[in-house]
């Protein structure tokens, strides 16, 4: 397709790019905008490593043609730990041993983030459902689930809103 100008909100800042609108959001984020925190595990929507938030919903960035994000809000893993601060979800991932090779971790954290935005006190089954599109080969998911449960409690204790 012909290139066109795409303007969207990326990690709370406006971005303007001139790009083939059929290019995937994943390759735009990584190869054009240098945001390598979003991982490419299959590029076919089958592993969830490339999960980002599109208007607050977790999506596979590899399946989103960038033309679709025109005027939308996109959040990547880089937005969760700005200015040297680490999000409570990330703290709990470390604390509970939920990070092994770490390749699924950014996508997994973002699925958790999207879940907690919508449902601040999820049950374990809801957590499993929320991360069921994120494959992890290292962990068997148990410590990831523990981390998300624990992050929900921590956020509630702190009386923090998720963001």
């Amino acid at each position: 397709m012909k290139k066109q100008v795409i303007i969207f909100q990326l990690n709370d800042e406006p971005v303007e790019i001139y790009v083939d609108p059929a290019e995937s959001l994943l390759t735009v984020l990584r190869d054009r905008l240098g945001l390598y925190g979003t991982k490419a595990g299959c590029s076919k929507g089958e592993c969830g490593a490339c999960t980002v938030l599109l208007d607050d919903r977790a999506v596979n960035s590899c399946l989103v043609p960038v033309g679709k994000v025109q005027g939308c809000k996109v959040e990547t893993i880089e937005n969760l730990s700005r200015g040297g601060k680490v999000h409570p979800i990330q703290e709990e991932f470390v604390d509970k041993g939920a990070v092994q090779c770490g390749f699924c971790t950014p996508g997994m954290v973002l699925s958790a983030y999207a879940l907690l935005k919508e449902n601040p006190q999820p049950a374990r089954d809801q957590i499993k459902m929320a991360i069921s599109g994120n494959l992890c080969r290292c962990s068997g998911y148990k410590q990831i689930e523990e981390a998300i449960l624990s992050a929900a409690k921590k956020l509630a204790r702190q009386g923090n809103s998720i963001t």
Binding site: R30, G37, I77, E78, V94, P106
Partner: peptide, 22 residues
């Protein structure tokens, strides 16, 4: 006491770790 881990986990959980594909 909670389980010591390599500092690398922090770069992984924040998306800063550089993998081969990156």
């Amino acid at each position: 006491s909670k389980g010591y881990q390599s500092p690398e986990v922090w770069s992984k959980v924040t998306g800063k770790a550089v993998y081969g594909i990156d």
